[in-house]
């Protein structure tokens, strides 16, 4: 199961027939396992890893540290709920350490992101402070390096 997930995580476009061969399973077994993983919410979706730098369109990503006053009975849940419902929010994690929630947001411009924080995020009841960090460059995302590395040129004629 873990090896199937790892293969899918790396490249979800590989056919089930190929996955089956690589794992030494039958195609039916792989079909079944994937269906099961989707059904029990282990696999939640499939997506491409895009380097938006390569496209003319500008995309701004920011990591926002959010400090939250936990609420009685609900802890951080309610505030979290109010944040992750926004479509702009790409990820939301509860963190240990100096702040509580880590929010990733993408927008078309820095202004758009800043406005989101000022008008949507900061005013939420229970949010006691935010710190916005803009991403300047992505080196690696989801285990993929963004700059194409140079290959070593001269190689031995070896068997």
């Amino acid at each position: 199961m873990t090896s199937l997930l790892k293969l899918l995580e790396r490249n979800c476009r590989v056919s089930n027939a190929q996955l089956a061969t690589m794992l030494g399973l039958s195609e039916e077994e792989v079909d079944e396992k994937i269906k099961e993983l989707e059904k029990n919410n282990t696999v939640l979706g499939y997506r491409a890893i895009v380097d938006w730098e390569q496209v003319k369109e500008e995309v701004v990503t920011a990591l926002i540290e959010v400090k939250v006053t936990p609420q009685r009975d609900l802890g951080f849940e309610r505030v979290a709920e109010r944040i992750y419902q926004y479509e702009e929010v790409e990820s939301l994690y509860l963190m240990s350490g100096g702040f509580d929630l880590s929010v990733t947001i993408t927008g078309k411009s820095m202004k758009e992101v800043a406005l989101f924080v000022a008008t949507k995020l900061a005013p939420i009841e229970g949010v006691s402070g935010t710190a916005t960090h803009f991403v300047l460059k992505k080196y690696k995302d989801h285990g993929v390096m963004f700059n194409i590395e140079e290959e070593q040129q001269e190689r031995a004629y070896l068997l």
Binding site: S3, L7, Q18, T21, M22, L23, G24
Partner: peptide, 14 residues
């Protein structure tokens, strides 16, 4: 080793 094994199955089958 695990990755080679997957490729081995793929190429042998191929």
């Amino acid at each position: 080793q695990n990755e080679y094994n997957q490729r081995r199955r793929l190429i042998t089958d191929g």
